[in-house]
Amino acid sequence: MKGRAAGVVVLVCVAALTADYAVKIAWTAASDVRVAALQEKVRADAGLAAALAAEQKKIADFNQARRTRINWLSLVLIVAAAAFLVEQPKAPRRIPEKPQKAAGVRRGGKPVVTGAAAPEIDLAFVDEVVAREGRGTEAAIPILQAIQAHYRYLPDEALRRVCELTEITPAQIAGTSSFYSRFRRSPVGEHIVRVCHGTACHVAGARQITDELRRELKIAEGEDTDPSRTFTIEEVACLGCCSLAPVVMVDEHTAGNLTPATACDALGEHA
């Protein structure tokens, strides 16, 4: 608001200075004519000399007054311009699009807040599994395996249901599910993209390939699945085809000799 007011003052000052200049041009032209005419008359009639002197004094006074006026106007203009510049709202700071190097992709681990809402799930399967595997603490791993096999990850609701039905504690589930990298706590995408981070691929730029894929799929920092749950990126050790480095495996299809520019082509028709 203040900024806008200052901007208006700036414009008014500039307009005033311009108008003042225009007036000065016109006034000077007119007074030049008057002085010339007077000088002509004075040559004939010396009595008019006083009038000529008065006219010339008027010109001097006008210039002096204009100087003072301009000084004040430009002072106001400078102050207003400074206020206008200071009051300018800053452009909002953009959030980095690329992921941070430091934050790697960790599978399993502590529950992450996913951007997209988890799909509604049917918990009848959990009851079925618990009935089959038993309610003891020793059944924890088979139950989790069954849930993972069915839902393709460990949904929070299913785990909560397991805690309700059995003697298994939430702490035990958290410990087990985060210890084994096979278990994952966030929904997995339709297709698994395995980016090879073996020595050869690492040297050939697997890091950049991963970054490029993550950027292309708009996978948020700390997550491994894109918002539409189509792709899940995994960093894996050697895929066994080092001569094709860097290599990406999309489900069962392998693509090699990639560059950041061609990495997305490997996603094929799924993308």
Partner: peptide, 9 residues
């Protein structure tokens, strides 16, 4: 650095 390119922008 982060390679984020914000400084370039």
């Amino acid at each position: 650095e982060l390679d984020c390119g914000l400084c370039t922008d």
